[in-house]
Amino acid sequence: MTVGLKQPPVDEGRKPQPSAGGRPPKRRRLLTMAKARPWLLLAPALILLAGLLLWPLARVFIFSLQDYGLRQIVSGKTKFIGLDNYAEVFGDSSLWTVVLPNTIGFAIVAVASTVIFGTLVALLMASLSPLWRTVVGSAVMVAWAMPAVTGTYVWIWIFDADQGLVNATLKGLGLMDESFNWFTNPVTFYGIVALNIVHHGFPFVAITVLAGLLGVPKEMLEAAEMDGAGPIRRFFQITYPTIKPVFSVVVILSTIWDFKVFAQIYLMPGGSGSNREVLNLGVWSYVESFGQNRYGFGAAIAVLLTVLLLIITAIYVRTLFKEEKV
């Protein structure tokens, strides 16, 4: 079960796609069977995806055009109000001063830190002996394994204003006179969230990039070293181009995960609505819907979040399809 026991089929993608349905059909009945088979195989997945992702996606848009409150949900009556919800979302000054900066700014910082840190860890791991690589790998797994909810509480505990380790240590070292509440200031609040996200998110990057790194042909690196290329140049000239697809995947996936971060904010002190300076799109949508019974308004915020992510997705799909033809 060690890394590299099985060859990752990295270059399989270059192979021509196998022709349809295994062996050539002999009779017409078989032909229709072969035609139907992929659809039969796909049916359960398609039904689930359509019913639980596509239809709800359409519905969230329909809701966003309504005054959809508790009374409407209970009675089942609809009341369309056109684009009023959107007008309110875009007319809300806190969208521009607080929510969007928090959402986008945080995603950029978190993605950059996660990917850079994860890559550095992967490079370090690649240079270790197999034993130490396993040790570090297991530690990284431990960080990954910590559920978001648990991890969030642990960080809250570490930064707790009255009993937390950080304040106690800083006070003990004489660096701080009065306890500081890390959760009230939006910058330190998001600093802790970033720490939480990086700690939880870098293992995916590290493990994926490491697997890619191990696939980089040694001969090329050695040849480059012979030519006198330093480690940084070797990384950017040989390693990076080889594992570029890996990077596009981890960057995009991290972006998507960090845009949607919810529990890590909602559970922090003040994060569920009382501290207005720390709202992001996800939490805002949730508290407006399930706290204020304004499901239509919440849906409009959700649509905004979806559109933002779909733009990123479009870029993702284009990058991937450019890299190799599916």
Binding site: L52, L57, I73, I256, A302, L309, L310, T313
Partner: peptide
């Protein structure tokens, strides 16, 4: 279908809370 599978991965789950709750 491949593109759809890829795209729906990106849909933010938070956005679906309301319709899925109703569903």
């Amino acid at each position: 279908i491949l593109i759809m599978v890829l795209t729906v991965q990106m849909v933010p789950l938070e956005a679906l809370v309301i319709p899925l709750f109703v569903q």
